[in-house]
Design a protein around this nucleic acid. Structure first.
Length: 641
RNA sequence: GCCGGUGUGGCGGAAUGGUAGACGCAGGGGAUUCAAAAUCCCCCGAUGGUGACAUCGUGCCGGUUCGAGUCCGGCCACCGGUACCA
């Protein structure tokens, strides 16, 4: 998670410098480039510029071939998939530049489709020996491949692919210009930057991959951008006293597009500057704008200002944030930026610049998607069917109403637009909310993705009915206290301990498994009525986070005080968790062969003696002494032969 | 490609380096019943064996350890993210 954010921000230190041109063109007499590997400068074999680079635009003005090439490059898609397939294309401009260390060394200048104008300077120097992309390019256009370092002193300089080791790996340098022949990339980079700065070849700069966040959206659902467009005054910010600009309620979504654009009156407003009739901006802000600081607003929801310092100081930080991993890069990062900004503007205390103390990344609920391959929606979009609209027939899945065979996309995150959402209301209607809640929690650990299936809901309902039945029987139980009470209460404390641990570590499924076990213990126990009532009340308490209604019912029926919701959570008595006798497995060479029941406080020596007297051990030893005898008190015995 | 994650029975999944498969689902057998529903009990990783038991088994290959699902190295597959970042 932290790594993902760190990589996304992408801080990198490199060198920015320029190649002087052999023959200038127009106002251009040099090409400015940025590199994170200045240590490989001696491996340069070409200079590449983006099709959108000013130099490329200058050239395309009077060269039709270049104009055509640039236009072709701009057409390509920018998705990862499109880029993956796209061929590396270059165009030799005929221009030549001089290497900064050796003015007689001339390099060709190519326009290349894989260089982007909006990162660095929009120009690179190509080092095919140590960059796979440059390597492919050099192979294609028959450019030299000059290694500047190799894995070791005796490695061959002939390369089948670019040699790109980790920056911390030791390598052997062929052309070091400011460091030892044997050092790692990181060291060489730092020394290369220092050397270049000292010799007037560019300067070290820090760049970030992170880009600006364009937050306007052509949608209804978002905070309006509070600016007004006036014919006379241009774009004018709305007056402070008119904030916030509120969205209209009378909108319709029948037609695709932004309903604010179509609203008859909402746009009309006087210009905040001159008072003349003007129009509101209809773009709204990305909803991430709101989700970036709502937790701060929640500390003082009725305040006239965004937050109240005292309240923010009292309530912040968020103790436990729960969200999906898909928010790692956007929402959770924006929130951190907002918190820092809100501290600077006096809306959050310094302690809240990291707003979340803990993060739990829950899994996603997934379900198959049913896509109709023949029909479209009335609005011409892909038609998806809800799970309840389809049924399985043989190997096919068909639409119940029409009999059309649908395309099944096996497992995807539930999404409103794909109609692969499941409404728990069906389970709630049939079995009640307690069953629905228990069932949802019982199967999968929350950090894992879960494919939704409702097949276990009936089993859950049976179990909860059983609990209620047992409680009813226990309410009428008049058995006197007896020798079984202690065992039941020990089980109770074990259950308190295990269930609590499960809940605190988000292991709800494990907690529920323990509750099944404890229910069985109560059902089987022959303990007296009072002990059973105590155990059952505790079971109700332990179940209450998952099945609050049933729990309160049982609690009241068995004489619990007030509401469970107000009762303090039970605490396990450590003394009751320790067993008097424990069963220790005996391993022979690491494999379980036998077991030994011993009193819990028996000394190691005595356990060893008993272990050596064990039948399976005697048989395995064949009269010899063991090589080694390991006794982990309370855990295990291992005899090494 | 890169970044992050996940791999355990028919299925969902348990397991502070210490008896792998808890608990649940599905399946099988039995009790109860005139019969059923409901309920209760037992079995349920694979192979061999009537059985006691033995061998194998946590994606694959290796390593560390008395002992590895768990730790380390190298792979493979799948899922999520992605902006050709110089």
């Amino acid at each position: 998670m932290r790594l993902m954010q760190e990589n996304w921000i992408g801080k990198s230190r490199g060198l920015q410098f320029s190649f002087s041109m052999v023959d200038g063109i127009g106002a251009h007499d040099r090409v400015e480039v940025y590199t994170t590997r200045p240590d490989t400068l001696m491996g340069a074999s070409f200079v590449g510029i983006s099709p959108d680079h000013p130099l490329a635009k200058e050239l395309e003005a009077d060269n039709a071939d270049i104009a055509a090439f640039n236009a072709e490059c701009r057409k390509g898609g920018t998705t990862a998939e499109a880029l993956e397939k796209a061929e590396k294309l270059g165009f030799d401009t005929g221009l030549r530049v001089r290497h900064p260390f050796d003015t007689s060394w001339e390099l060709p200048v190519y326009i290349a489709n894989f260089i982007m104008m909006d990162y660095g300077t929009g120009a690179i120097f190509g080092c095919p020996a140590h960059d796979q992309r440059d390597f492919d390019f050099a192979k294609k256009y028959d450019l030299p491949i000059i290694p500047t370092f190799l894995p070791s002193a005796d490695s061959s300089p002939e390369l089948d692919e670019a040699f790109v080791p980790n920056k911390t790996d030791m390598v052997h340098w062929l052309t070091p210009f400011a460091w030892d022949a044997a050092t790692n990339g990181e060291d060489a980079i730092n020394k290369a930057v220092d050397f270049c700065e000292a010799n007037g070849v560019g300067q070290g700069v820090t760049k970030f991959r992170l880009r600006d966040w364009g937050l306007s959206r052509q949608r209804y659902w978002g905070a309006p951008i509070p600016v007004v467009h006036c014919d006379d005054c241009g774009v004018v910010p709305e007056k402070k006293e008119n904030l916030p600009v509120e969205l209209p309620y009378d909108v319709s979504f029948d037609i695709p597009g932004n309903p604010l654009d179509r609203h008859p009156t909402w746009r009309n407003t006087p210009c905040p500057a001159c008072g003349k009739d003007a129009l509101r901006e209809t773009d709204t802000m990305d909803t991430f704008v709101d989700s970036s600081w709502y937790f701060a607003r929640f500390t003082s929801p009725h305040a006239k200002t965004p937050t109240e310092q005292a309240d923010a100081e009292y309530w912040m930080n968020v103790d436990q944030y729960i969200g999906g991993i898909e928010h790692a890069i956007l929402h959770l990062l924006y929130s951190r930026f907002f918190a820092r900004a809100m501290h600077k503007t006096g809306h959050l205390p310094a302690t809240a610049i990291e707003p979340f103390d803990a993060l739990f990344t829950q899994g996603m609920v997934t379900h198959a998607i049913y896509e109709n391959p023949t029909r479209k929606t009335p609005m011409g979009q892909t038609l998806y069917h809800y799970p309840e609209e389809v049924e399985k027939r043989g190997d096919d899945v068909i639409v119940k109403e029409t009999g059309e065979t649908v395309k099944v996309i096996p497992s995807a995150k539930m999404s409103k637009s794909k109609n692969n959402v499941v409404d728990p209301v069906a389970i709630i209607n049939q079995y009640g909310a307690d069953t629905a809640r228990w069932f949802v929690l019982s199967d999968s650990p929350p950090e894992r993705d879960v494919e939704w299936t409702a097949s276990g809901a009936e089993a859950t309902h049976k179990h909860l009915s059983r609990v209620y039945r047992i409680a009813t029987e226990i309410a009428a139980n008049t058995d006197a206290p007896n020798g079984q009470d202690d065992a039941l209460l020990r089980d109770m404390h074990k259950a308190i301990h295990d269930v609590t641990q499960g809940v605190e570590s988000f292991g709800f499924n494990a907690s529920i498994a323990k509750l099944y076990g404890f229910t069985g213990s109560i059902a089987k126990s022959k303990a007296g009525g009072d002990a059973k009532r105590q155990a059952m009340r505790t079971l109700a308490q332990l179940m209450s986070p998952m099945t609050p209604h049933l729990a309160e019912d049982i609690w009241a029926m068995l004489g619990g005080d007030g509401l469970i919701a107000n009762a303090t959570w039970p605490v396990a008595d450590e003394a009751m968790l320790v067993e008097d006798t424990i069963t220790m497995p005996i391993q022979i060479n690491g494999k379980r062969r036998s077991e030994l029941a011993v009193p819990k406080d028996m000394s190691k020596e005595e356990v060893e003696k008993l272990a050596l007297a064990d039948e399976a051990v005697i048989k395995a030893l064949e009269g010899n002494a063991p090589k080694k005898l390991i006794v982990v008190p309370g855990r295990i015995i291992n005899v090494v032969i």
